[in-house]
């Protein structure tokens, strides 16, 4: 769906921010961009959305060169959630906020209402609420709702779970996953490796403007060198499995879930007692 071909980018008067990036994001995938602060994840997300253009190389979206499109015309096909929800919110009520996106991207008024109701129900938002009076987490949900209400082909999320408690975080990620199952491709910038493990099927690791690893989620998260070289830690369950294996307990290789870990520990306990 998205193909980067030897893409480089630099902001004015600063050195190269992104250098010679080549990779592909498959249609229907959930891809996580991970890396330390300043690695270039947000810049990469903005390049994908067409908000900024590469200084070298090209980016293809459905075989169309993004640099040749106006960013505003891509809104119907791409949704983008910014790190700070207050950047996006500009209307007096949650309902108006969703209408703002829908009016520009969906022609049919009946379809607009259906999409709006769907997202309001899924994220438990009240259309009459005033966004700026809501909590940080609620505003994040409003911003997310307005980014995905029109069901774009590609949804780009820049730290979607920032400021959310565990319940809200699960709620929105479940909804994003449900949209993904309906065919929406998702690219998310994420610092929370637990979220990456639970929801992403593909991971791109970045460090100092370069891609240091690119592959299937479990393969990347179980590769200590891929993570540590970018100042990242694996999710706790994978860290625990690695630690047990290092201590001489076999059978923990490839364990990524609490259930699998519990089963393996039980098996190991039985083996010891037997």
């Amino acid at each position: 769906m998205i193909r980067f071909e030897k893409v480089s980018f630099s902001y004015m008067e600063e050195g190269s921010t992104l250098q010679d990036l080549s990779f592909t994001i498959e249609k229907g995938s959930i891809t996580a961009l991970v890396g330390a602060n300043g690695a270039g994840k947000t810049t990469l997300a903005k390049l994908i959305r067409g908000l900024i253009h590469p200084t070298a190389g090209r980016i293809l979206f459905e075989e169309e060169d993004i640099s040749k499109c106006k960013a505003s015309t891509l809104a119907a096909r791409m949704g983008y959630l910014f790190q700070n929800p207050d950047r996006q919110i500009c209307k007096n009520t949650v309902g108006e906020e969703l209408d703002f996106t829908l009016e520009r991207t969906v022609q049919d008024p009946i379809e607009r209402q259906r999409l709006k109701d769907d997202v309001l129900n899924a994220l438990q938002l009240d259309p009459a609420d005033e966004p700026f009076l809501l909590s940080r987490g609620e505003r994040q949900k409003v911003a997310l709702a307005s980014a995905l209400v029109h069901r774009p082909q590609l949804l780009i999320l820049d730290e979607p779970t920032t400021g959310l408690d565990y319940k809200e975080c699960t709620q929105i990620m479940e909804y994003v996953q449900a949209l993904n199952r309906q065919g929406v491709t998702v690219v998310m910038v994420c610092h929370d490796m637990e979220i990456v493990l639970d929801y992403a099927d593909h991971v791109i690791v970045m460090h100092s403007g370069k891609i240091t690893a690119d592959g299937k989620t479990r393969q990347i998260l179980q590769d200590p060198t891929a993570l540590t070289s970018s100042a990242l830690l694996p999710p706790q369950i994978i860290g625990l499995a690695a630690r047990l294996m290092a201590d001489g307990y076999s059978g923990f290789e490839g364990i990524c879930t609490v259930d699998a870990m519990a089963t393996q520990i039980e098996a190991a306990r039985k083996a010891v007692t037997a």
Partner: peptide, 10 residues
């Protein structure tokens, strides 16, 4: 940043 965010919304 706000202009970028609104551009992303069409």
């Amino acid at each position: 940043s706000i202009m970028e965010a609104q551009t992303a919304r069409g």
